[in-house]
Design a protein around this nucleic acid. Structure first.
Lengths: 119, 119
DNA sequence: AAATGAACAGGCTGTTCATTT
DNA sequence: AAATGAACAGCCTGTTCATTT
């Protein structure tokens, strides 16, 4: 059972949770909209996050006590209502972002080192 | 079943295979020695590749037709003999390295973008 | 159909066990 | 014990199915 030791690169889950926090801070989006935005953003890099992983990220942020769910009637079109999220604990959010930044930097260093060593 | 589409970061397997090729090019090392070298190299980045994953990388490179196994009597100390590897197909090796470089660059871009977008 | 969510399945990888020298 | 390898187990994540609006 991996205990978080000896780890390789950052996990997709953490990567997405980071973006979810970022979206919520900007008062944007519900689940699928976040996914579409990310797909568009990363399309040229060949990365297409799936909806289930986006939802899992959101759910986990709720379990972490960082976000809360809120139902919201849709303003204009399409269907009735969506689930939006709000920051409930800014401190926890800041801490999480800080931790993820460390992991992102570490991951970058691993990749950079390989590029330097081998090519 | 993931078909290599919509993928996130480069996999540890590919990362290690790249280093294995690099080691073999320098006529270095057998399995555990390679692992120790990598552990030392990445220790400060908190990455510690496990022996089974190193062996799997080596085996896969054999399946890929890039390396061949060769038993070699140990020169000085410790125990009797180890398994060393030789490059059998330089073209394939070059191609593989090129492919991995693409994936490394792509992965770096993903991480860099997240750092730019969120922080 | 859009949106959310859960169930299911498979791949990747760490831990453990087995074998040889 | 060092070295190699395979078996086993668990986590992560993509695919599929179910439900609601």
């Amino acid at each position: 059972m991996p205990r978080g030791e000896g780890k390789f690169l950052i996990k997709q889950r953490a990567f997405l949770k980071l973006y979810m926090i970022s979206f919520v801070e900007e008062h944007k989006v519900y689940g699928l909209q976040a996914m579409d935005e990310l797909k568009a953003k990363f399309k040229q890099l060949g990365y297409e996050p799936q909806h289930s992983e986006v939802y899992r990220s959101l759910h986990e942020l709720i379990d972490d006590g960082i976000l809360v769910r809120r139902k919201k009637a849709i303003e204009g079109m399409k269907y009735k209502e969506v689930v939006v999220y709000e920051l409930i604990n800014l401190e926890k959010a800041k801490l999480y972002k800080k931790q993820v930044k460390t992991d992102l930097d570490r991951s970058m260093s691993l990749l950079r080192k390989a590029l330097e060593d081998v090519y």
